[in-house]
Design a protein around this nucleic acid. Structure first.
Lengths: 351, 351
DNA sequence: ATGAAAGCGCTAACAT
DNA sequence: ATGTTAGCGCTTTCAT
C-alpha cells in the first residue's frame, strides 16, 4: 500500500529530540517535556528551558506526527472520499473551512474510472489507504447506491466514525448530512403549479439513488393534491433519452414543464428540446437541481441551490464531535433545505 | 499541531502483528516476513504461511502505515496546497488521476481567509502540518506573489521535493508546471488582429503576478509588430475598475476589443460594459482566460482553455520522478500551451 | 529538577 | 525454517 522508491538520503541527518538532547547535554525526556510544555509536576530550570528551546529553534526541529499518531491514535488526519468536481468542490470547501481551524487535515481521494489496479476495487483500496494511515474518521459520499456493505464494515469494525454525505443508503445506519430532497421536489412542484403549469415531466435517474427518488417523490406528492395535474417520469438512459423525451413532448398530453434531477440532466434536456424546435421558457419550462456551474451556458438555468458549503461545514463539525466523544452516541442527521433560484428557464405556460 | 480529544477506546484491542503471532504461536518476525512476502532467503513451511495468512484475514489485520512511514520515510503521502474551487479543481483532478495508480494519496489544504489561529500565518501552519506528517513531497500553487521565501526554506531544508504550479516566482528556482502565458497572450492578439481589431485594452491584475504579467507581455509583443495597433492596460482595483473601464471606452481612441487576464475579470468587464450600454460582441469583443465555468452565464465567453487536468497530471508525474530519484537533478519545467476557445463574445469590429 | 526504562507496531540485521 | 535483538522518534510511568 506504499510505493517503493529508492528513498534517497532524505531519511538521514534529521533533527530529532535526540539530536537536541545530545547538543544540550540532557536526556530525551527532558527535551520532550520542555518542548511539549508538559511541566505539570516537573519544574525545569528556566535556563535549561531556554537553552533547549533555542536549540530546537536553531535546528528547526519539527515533531514527527507519525510517531504521535502511532502512539495515541490522534493523527489529526481525516479521510475524505468524494470528487472535487462541480457540486462536491463546494462541499470540500466547507469541510476544509472547519478543519483548518481545528488542526485537522484531510486525506482526499475518490473513485474514478482511470484506475488500473486489478487487485481490488478502487473504493476498497482507498479505504485501506486511509485506514492504514490511521485517519480518525471518514467523510464519504457513496459513489453508487450499491456501495458495498463490506466497505462500511471495514470502517465500523475499527470504530472509525463515518459520516455519509448527500446520499443515504438503505440498510446503512450512520451519521448523515445532505439535502432535503423531498422538500426540493415539493418546492419545484409548487412553483410550477403557481406559474400555471398543469402537465409535468420528471427526469431522473431511477429509484436506486436516494436523491433522485426523494426529489421525485416530493414533486409527485404535491402534484397528486391537484386533481387537474398530470405527470410522467422519464429515467435517463444514454441511448434512448433524446428519442423518448422528444416523443413525450410530441404526444397529445405533452408536458409544459420539466423538473430534472440535476443540472446536468437539465442541460441535456434543454439541448435536446431546443434542437427539437421548442423554445425555452416560452414553450417549455425547465428546472434543474444543484446550481452547478458550466463553461458555456447561454441561458441561465432555474435550479435549486443545495448550500454545499454548509453541507461540508456540517459534516466536518459532526466529524469533530464524533472523534472527540468518549462514548458512542446515536446516529446524527442534518438535512439542509435547498433553495429555488429562479433564472431564465421557467415561465408561465403559453396557455 | 494535533487536536486534543479524549481518544476513546478506539486505540485498544487493535489487531497487530503481535496479536497474530500470539494466536499462531510464532514470533512477530515470522508474521512480518510472511505477510510482506519477504521470503527471499527464508523459506517458510507452506503450512505456517497459510496459517498466518488465514489468521490475518480472519482478524482483518491491516498494517500501520504510520510505523512504516516513520521507519523508512516512505509514507505514500503527498502534500497538495491549492484550493479546490474552479480552475484548481481540474488540476487536483489530474493529480489524483496519477496518484491513484501509484499508491500515493494526497493531504490537501490551502490558504483561505476564515482562519482564526493567531499564532502563525496559515500557509506556514499548513506546511508544518504536512511536514510533520512526513509528506514525501509537496505540490503547491503560491497564493500570492510574495509567498514568503521562508516557507520554501522550511521545505528545502528537509530535502522535500517541491513542485510549483501555475505561478512561478522570481527568485525561486524549483520544479514548475504551468501555462504558456506568453503564447496565450500572443494568440489572443493574433486572433483579434485577424478579426480586424486595431485598438485594444488589456485588463489584468498588475505586474506582480507572473501569469498576468506574461499574458500581457505576449499580447503586447504581437501588437507592437503592427504599426497601426493601439493598446492600453488597466489593472483591476475593486473600487475604481468600473469607472475607469467606462471612461476608457468613452474616450476618443476607445478600444474595440478587450483581452482579460481571467474569466472572472472578463465577466466583470462584460457586466460593466453591458450596463454602460455597449453590446457584446457587436460593439466590443471580450476574451477571457481559463475556461472556468459559471453558474448563471447567459453568454458564452470566448476564452483560453489551460488544460488543467494535464497540468495536474504533469505535476504528479514530476512528483513521482522526484521522490524516486536517488540523486538531486536539475530543475524541471513543463509549460503547456493554452488553446483559444472561440465562443460568443468576439466578432469583427463594427467598422 | 532531571533521568532510566518500557512500550507504541514494525523491519531488518544477525543468529541458530 | 524460525527466533533474538536493536532501533525508528517519541511519551509516559516510575525513579532519584
Amino acid at each position: 500500500m506504499v510505493p517503493k522508491g529508492k528513498s534517497p538520503d532524505r531519511k538521514r541527518n534529521r533533527v530529532t529530540m535526540k539530536t537536541i538532547a545530545e547538543e544540550a547535554g540532557v536526556t530525551l525526556t527532558t527535551v520532550s517535556r520542555i518542548l511539549n510544555n508538559k511541566i505539570d509536576k516537573n519544574t525545569y530550570a528556566a535556563e535549561t528551558r531556554d537553552r533547549i528551546i533555542s536549540i530546537a529553534n536553531r535546528l528547526k526541529y519539527r515533531p514527527n506526527a507519525l510517531v504521535l499518531g502511532m502512539q495515541t491514535g490522534q493523527t489529526g488526519i481525516a479521510g475524505v472520499m468524494m470528487p472535487v468536481a462541480g457540486f462536491y468542490g463546494g462541499i470540500i470547501d466547507g469541510i476544509h473551512d472547519v478543519f483548518v481551524n481545528n488542526n485537522t487535515i484531510m486525506l482526499l481521494s475518490w473513485n474514478n474510472r482511470s484506475h488500473n489496479d486489478r487487485e481490488e476495487k478502487l473504493e476498497r483500496q482507498i479505504i485501506h489507504q486511509m485506514v492504514d494511515r490511521r485517519v480518525q474518521g471518514i467523510i464519504l459520499r457513496p459513489s453508487s447506491e450499491d456501495f458495498e456493505r463490506s466497505y462500511f464494515e471495514e470502517i465500523w469494525e475499527r470504530d472509525i466514525p463515518l459520516i455519509l454525505i448527500d446520499r443515504h443508503l438503505s440498510n446503512i445506519d450512520t451519521d448523515f448530512v445532505g439535502t432535503d430532497d423531498i422538500a426540493g421536489g415539493r418546492a419545484a412542484a409548487e412553483y410550477l403549479i403557481g406559474l400555471g403549469h398543469r402537465r409535468f415531466l420528471f427526469v431522473g435517474v431511477g429509484l436506486s439513488a436516494s436523491t433522485s427518488r426523494d426529489r421525485e417523490e416530493g414533486f409527485r406528492r404535491v402534484l397528486s393534491e391537484y386533481s387537474t395535474a398530470f405527470w410522467k417520469s422519464l429515467y435517463y438512459k444514454p441511448e434512448t433519452f433524446e428519442d423518448n423525451l422528444v416523443q413525450i413532448l410530441r404526444s397529445s398530453e405533452a408536458p409544459t414543464a420539466i423538473f430534472c434531477y440535476s443540472d446536468a440532466l437539465a442541460r441535456k434536456s434543454l439541448k435536446c428540446v431546443t434542437q427539437a424546435g421548442f423554445s425555452v421558457p416560452r414553450d417549455l419550462s425547465i428546472i434543474g437541481f444543484g446550481n452547478e456551474s458550466m463553461k458555456d451556458g447561454t441561458i441561465a438555468l432555474t435550479t435549486f441551490d443545495q448550500f454545499t458549503f454548509l453541507i461540508g461545514q456540517s459534516a466536518a463539525q459532526m466529524y469533530l464531535e464524533r472523534i472527540n466523544e468518549t462514548e458512542k452516541n446515536g446516529v446524527r442527521t442534518r438535512i439542509i433545505t435547498p433553495e429555488l433560484i429562479i433564472r431564465g428557464t421557467t415561465a408561465p405556460p403559453l396557455r
